[in-house]
Simulated scan of single mutants.
Amino acid sequence: MDTTRDLPHQLNQEWADAFNAGDLPRLMTMYEPDAVLVPGPGAAPVHGLPAIESAMRWFLALGGRLQYTPRHWLVQGDLVLSSVAFEMDGGRDEAGNPVELRGVTDEVARRQADGSWKYVIDHPFGGAA
């Protein structure tokens, strides 16, 4: 059962669960084909599933654990604007140096024909703290 059906706020939990499990295929099911992602603080946006998948491979390779606190979900018809505050602890870069990320997201998701929700715009570092 797809728990995001009619429950757009569950999309963040499913994303965090997939990230913490290192499940790239599952993460990729949460984006529309032409979605936009900002892959890091100050990074240029990437467009489309192949570019998002590449960015996600790097992010997952850090190996950290993600936790988040919802800020808001504003639903208008088949669109939702959301924001969460997040922390990723325990990550390590290729050289083994600790990497900890914190931020506040700006996200737009759209209800799909089957009732599920997928990200259209995902800016993990776009929100104000």
Rank of each mutant, 00 (worst) to 15 (best):
A109S: 12
G90W: 05
M88L: 10
N97S: 13
E107K: 04
W73C: 01
E87N: 12
L74Y: 05
P98N: 14
T105V: 10
L74P: 07
R102L: 01
A85C: 01
L81D: 00
D89R: 15
D106Q: 15
V108G: 07
R92H: 15
V108A: 07
L74H: 11
A95G: 10
G91L: 03
E107M: 08
R92D: 09
L101F: 13
D78Q: 11
G77F: 06
W73A: 02
R110S: 09
D93A: 14
G96W: 13
L81R: 12
G96M: 14
D89S: 12
D93C: 12
E100Y: 07
T105Q: 11
G77D: 03
G91A: 05
S82R: 00
V99D: 07
Q76C: 04
V108E: 06
V104T: 15
V104M: 07
M88E: 07
D106R: 14
W73D: 01
G77M: 08
G91F: 02
G91E: 07
N97P: 01
G96C: 10
S83A: 08
R111L: 10
V108Y: 02
G96F: 11
Q112I: 04
V99L: 06
E94S: 15
A109E: 01
A85D: 08
S83T: 03
S83L: 01
D106H: 11
P98A: 15
D89C: 08
R92P: 00
V75A: 02
V75E: 00
V108S: 05
R110L: 08
E107C: 09
S83I: 00
S83W: 01
Q112E: 14
L81T: 01
G90S: 10
A95T: 14
E87K: 09
T105S: 15
D106T: 13
V104H: 09
V104R: 06
N97M: 09
W73L: 02
V84W: 02
V80S: 04
L74T: 08
D106P: 00
A95R: 15
G103T: 06
V108P: 03
S82Y: 00
R111E: 01
M88P: 03
L79Y: 14
P98T: 15
S82W: 00
E94W: 13
G103H: 06
G96L: 13
E107V: 06
R111F: 08
F86G: 03
G91I: 01
R110P: 00
S82G: 15
F86T: 09
R102Y: 05
L74A: 14
V104S: 12
G96T: 06
V84E: 05
L81Y: 05
V75T: 03
V99H: 09
S82A: 13
L81H: 09
G77Y: 07
W73M: 04
R92F: 12
A85H: 03
W73Q: 03
V84M: 08
G90C: 06
W73P: 00
S83C: 04
R110I: 02
V84F: 05
L79N: 11
V75G: 00
E94A: 15
R102S: 12
P98R: 15
G90T: 08
L81I: 02
E107Y: 06
F86P: 04
E94M: 13
V99K: 06
G91C: 04
S82P: 02
T105M: 09
Q76L: 07
F86H: 05
E87S: 13
V80M: 05
V104Q: 12
